[in-house]
């Protein structure tokens, strides 16, 4: 079963929920749980887990390599490229690798066969394991724009025979789509504030577009107003869990301690959430 954790708004507690759920699951069935940190721009799961990570693979994109002895500078490749990753001058070709999506079109169409492919590393996949939990995290290299290829590589590590928990990046653009696509359930973590509600609505639209079943987790319950609850009720969206507003949670999190480890009551709530999640499989 694949469960993704997303939010729209950042800082609502996605990572806390993903890690706590993974810990609750791994303690009852060691070696049957995977956690994938798909927030490859800012992966944080391991700051709470403290595993020793090893590099599992590098994520490479195929970008054009121009053989200037064959090229006659006709410019067809630059005309074709929708990402403006190639510029053809009278006697030179410039490749803007960071703009290239690696579609391979220029190589296919070059009439002189002057374009080959070289690989460019855009990120890495790292792996760790501790106390029956397997973690994979993606890491986008600094200065790289496009997170999706790293998320795709990360999701190839999914062992669908296990419970797989995916921690998404915030927002509602392509990295989020790539993460939650194909999940059996998406947990949308929000907080009961105007920003939380506004961004929850956007995240719900994405989940509905992708036909991914979803439920809501309300974090910092009590801090704001009742509009998230009212809206979920109106939309018949199940609220699967509430995490009370607590400075203790924030303090433990700030030290890199999963709040469930310091707060037994909270751990019980995650065991309940796990049951609710599996009831929806």
């Amino acid at each position: 079963m694949i469960v993704s954790v997303a939010s729209g708004k950042g800082g609502t507690g996605k990572t806390t929920v993903a890690v706590s759920l993974a810990l609750a699951a791994a303690s009852s069935r060691p070696d049957r749980v995977q956690l994938l940190d798909c927030d490859v721009e800012e992966p944080n799961c391991n700051l709470l887990l403290g595993m020793n990570l090893e590099t599992a693979e590098e994520v490479n994109l195929g970008v054009p390599a121009i053989d200037k002895t064959k090229c006659d500078f006709c410019g067809k490749c630059a005309d074709f490229c929708n990402y403006h990753a190639l510029a053809v001058l009278p006697s030179d070709v410039i490749v803007f690798s960071e703009l290239c999506h690696g579609c391979g079109g220029c190589m296919l169409l070059c009439p002189k066969g002057a374009i080959g492919e070289k690989t460019r590393t855009v990120g890495t996949i790292q792996r760790g394991r501790k106390d029956g939990l397997e973690l994979y995290q993606g890491l986008l290299n600094i200065g790289e724009a496009v997170a999706v290829p790293v998320i795709k590589a990360l999701k190839r590590k999914i062992d669908s025979g296990r419970l797989v928990i995916l921690d998404s990046s915030p927002g509602a653009a392509c990295p989020v789509v790539e993460t939650i696509r194909g999940s059996d359930l998406c947990l949308l973590v929000t907080e009961p504030t105007p920003f939380g509600l506004h961004d929850l609505k956007i995240a719900v639209t994405v989940a509905r577009k992708l036909n991914v079943p979803f439920g809501v987790v309300i974090n910092r319950d009590g801090i704001g107003d009742g509009r998230v609850d009212d809206w979920c009720k109106d939309e018949k969206i199940p609220v699967l869990m509430r995490i009370p507003n607590s400075l203790e949670v924030a303090r433990l999190y700030s030290k890199g301690i999963p709040p469930v480890l310091g707060m037994p009551d909270l751990n019980d709530r995650f065991i309940e959430l796990l049951k609710a999640v599996e009831g929806r499989a």
């Binding site: 721009e41 724009a145 997170a147 927002g171 924030a250 999190y253």
Partner: peptide, 26 residues
């Protein structure tokens, strides 16, 4: 948030990037 394309587009041409952090490990 993040470090990818919308962030790169947002800071391009800026005279100053003010980075708001919080004192948590993440």
């Amino acid at each position: 948030p993040g470090t990818g394309c919308p962030v790169i587009a947002s800071i391009g041409g800026s005279d100053l990037a003010l980075v708001i952090t919080e004192p948590s490990l993440s």
